[in-house]
Amino acid sequence: MMNAIIEKINAALADAERRLAAAATPAEVEQLRIELIGRNGLFPALSKEMGSVPAEERRETGAAFNAGRTRIQEWLEAAVQRLAATPAESMAKMDLTLPGRRWRTGHKHPISIVIDECVAIFRRMGFIVADGPEIESVYHNFDALNTPPDHPSRDPQDTFYFADGRILRSQTSPVQIRVMESQEPPVRIVAPGRVYRRDTPDATHGMNFHQIEGLYIDRDVSMSDLKSVLQSFAVEMFGPKAKIRLRPHFFPFTEPSVEYDFSCIMCEGKGCPVCKNSGYIEIAGAGMVDPNVLRNVGYDPEVWSGFAFGMGIERLAMLRYRIGDLRYLYENDVRFLGQF
């Protein structure tokens, strides 16, 4: 059964459909919205007429009213969206090739980037960072590390001395001693920091450079643990294909001692100028802490064992970023710093 209200609704829907299809501006859509569902529009008016509808028709009329209003709203919505999607006049005039207004970001120094990465990798493996003074005693830098009294590294040719007999630490290893002196095992630390050697600055040397040292002391620590930690580090630092290789070596403070190489990050071990066709890049030294060192800090070598390793941060940074000259790292040209 069709009453007057339903007829008006149907007529309004037909009219709206036609006009919305033809609408070209948001203003036309808005005009229709006001006519139909605005405060003084058709639907509010019809709503007032509902009272006069006979009781038996009320249900059907109400349903038609609600359905009609919902549809109008949907159509209006769709029309608004359609028109909004059309490029406005101002858009057509936009020059997308103009540079955006850049948001400045700061830049971390490549040495800091590498230290932070190393530290993050080792923290995940349960190491925390320890630190020590850079003006260090000969005892901590050499004696306690089992360095023989006439070892060449103690020579004033190689190490910086102060008048009071102290030195600038030539390695981060004295931090090992300081930590072991101040705490009972187990110990699991890394020590990044600045170290000093009496080298005239050139492409691969500086008066100071940075190392990161690692030390793990516990019961039953083995070379297998050392190798595993270094292998995990290589993978985290240089990607899943990175491999390590240990070679026997000699350091006074470890026994057995090794040097470790990473598979060349440039050629993945195939051989290239960077690795001098060996497929490997020499990184640094490591080994099982020498029983004499453990004894020097009051640890019983029959109970405790452990490993230590070190590596040069500048070397890692230069490899990672293919920086050919170490001096750029200390020159602080903003065109350099801005690249990292």
Partner: peptide
């Protein structure tokens, strides 16, 4: 007990403000 964490945070904050980090020799 980590000796580096607090310095790392300071640096990250300053970099966040748009500054470039420098490093010079100690001597």
């Amino acid at each position: 007990d980590d000796a580096y964490w607090k310095y790392q945070q300071l640096r990250d904050e300053l970099i966040g403000y748009g500054l470039y980090e420098c490093m010079h020799y100690s001597m």
